[in-house]
Design a protein around this nucleic acid. Structure first.
Lengths: 157, 157
DNA sequence: ATGATCTCCGATCAGTTCAGTCGTACTAAG
DNA sequence: CTTAGTACGACTGAACTGATCGGAGATCAT
């Protein structure tokens, strides 16, 4: 349950890779192309391309066309949260359908619904968790986040 | 993203209803049948029946056959966690596929996978969150949980 | 006992979403 | 102007989800 899609998986891997190349010691500032990532992690090339396009459209990475082109982080790894990445690929976080009812939608269970409020609480907690962890936290492998209380409403760290 | 299924939604509603009847002031100890819940919340009868069967098989509720039969919580509402309910319906919590690789399975990206560890951290945090909230916490409507840090490893409250 | 009521269980089906593919157009470097 | 790359949209097959149907088994009232 609560599984994230493979596209999201690929997005996380790709971003981590781009970040590590861009801010690494070997070739800092180098652009990374789709093929390189696809081969490194055994991801189908065309699918990864699609994912990267979406990330680019959402402003997480910048694309450079032509030969020697590729992708670059649009901002620092510490300013890209996991929530932003996942939401770019999979749409807004929504544990349950009724969390973003537009006009016209109508929840058949709404009148006597007894679980809406607690579910929204849970959803908010998860969002805080994902939004408090950045791409920067994922890098380097080991020194991860000290997991915070989801009640702590801090927006940016 | 991270949406839970409608079955899980129905399970939560049904359990909340059963608990509120069973421990309510009006008719304490009364059994609740599928039809009553389905009509109250506008849930397709057969689908709800299936959900309740699964919950029963997982030991969350007890079934009583025959006329005047129905369902009863198998234990107190405070001893049933949200995690238990969701996992009964949707299977084990798994943000990502590689979190429960059996023998024979093989993750193509495993060798150079850079996101496994942080994802497992996130998954664990979410699990703690869901496992620290009980059916009892969901009841009464208003006095909800004081959301706890997912790092707090307490099993029961 | 017998019948009515209810849970239990398995099989099935349409619709949707997801992973992956293909073909083509556009852009920039050499 | 050729080549290497991104950008974009349409398409397919497989898996999952929500929902439905039919009948078997259990229990209570009469």
């Amino acid at each position: 349950m609560l599984k994230i899609s493979k596209k999201a998986d690929y997005a996380l891997m790709a971003l981590q890779h781009i970040a590590s190349v861009q801010f690494g010691d070997v070739t800092p500032g180098r652009v990374v192309n789709t093929k390189e990532i696809a081969e490194e992690y055994n991801i189908p090339l065309e699918l990864l391309a699609k994912v990267l396009q979406v990330l680019s459209k959402h402003g997480l990475i910048e694309s450079h066309n032509g030969p020697k082109g590729g992708y670059l982080l649009a901002r620092s790894a510490r300013q890209i949260t996991i929530a932003q990445i996942l939401e770019s690929i999979e749409g807004p976080l929504a544990i349950t359908d009724c969390s973003h009812e537009k006009e016209g939608d109508f929840c058949m269970q709404r009148e006597h619904c007894n679980i809406r409020t607690p579910l929204l609480k849970i959803q908010d907690s998860i969002y805080q968790l994902l939004n408090n962890m950045t791409l920067g936290d994922m890098m380097g492998g080991t020194p991860l986040i000290s997991i915070q209380s989801p009640a702590a409403q801090g927006v940016e760290r």
